[in-house]
Amino acid sequence: MIAYLITIAILVIIAALIGLALNLQWGLAGLVNFGVVGFVAIGAYTTALTAPAIGWLPAMLLAAFVAAALSAGLALLSIRLEENYLAIITIGFGEAVRLVILNEGWLTNGALGIADIQRPFPGLTERFGGDIVFVVFAIGVLAVVFVALEGWTRAPFGRALRAIRDDATISAALGKPVFALRVRAFAIGGAVMGLAGALQAFYLTYIDPSQFSAIVTSYAFMAVIAGGRGSNVGLLVGAGSIMALLEGTRFLKDFISVIDGVQLSALRLGLIGVGIILLLILRPQGLVPEARRKAADVLAKPREAA
């Protein structure tokens, strides 16, 4: 049971990282990204391919860097586009990544994937058991990312992004470098997705293209919508409850014998779709709405002063 809870915890952490990244790009900066899974895959493969040669920490940093560089590149090309166009470009990017991974067998071993990826801290792992060490490590990564993103959200950078999301024209008129800020937000999000991919590669110790289907992107959107766009705390709540629901429904198979594995997975995915639609219609602000600051909160309060 403990082992199962740890597994869920790690899956939640990976989902939360991806969700946090999307929350920065879409929730805070208003840039829709349907190619999330492509960046996660890039992170995972970069880690898996380079970790044996350069060690796990440089490999993770490289994964974040490569994913960030590709994000920035894609953003430079397409971020000026209106959201419908950005959406299809990012879908196309995700598919392109999948095709390259499938077809460039010399690099990625194609559909067979890469096995025997070494986890960090092999010494500690032998002493305490693998998953416990890994879950602590994963929590550490999540904490660092969360603190960094939450800091940026409160910093002028985050405020400028919100302003751009709400009205790009006014922000530009007020002298905010709209384009540069958007590219930066996209790149930082990409880096975090790359890190999530690295964690996934380390945790499963085996990656193949089938792990990186468009479903990953759907989960991330569900998490951001459920948590409340723009709210990092909400995102953690959202990602946690969704993964718990998803993992919890795995047990349904034991009780309901009429549906088989394929049907169960179809049911879960279909429910994700229903959930996205219902939340958008009924509770667009999410479970933990983004804090709306008014000018009065920042300025001195005249009434109390008087």
Binding site: W26, S218, V262, Q263, L267, L269, G275, I277, P284
Partner: peptide, 29 residues
Amino acid sequence: LKNRDSISLLVASMGLSLVLENICRFFLG
């Protein structure tokens, strides 16, 4: 959702896409 921003409609149509695809998968594998 017609009075919301177009991103909401976009994401909702993505959700609908998941629903329809998995209805087919559920009944026909």
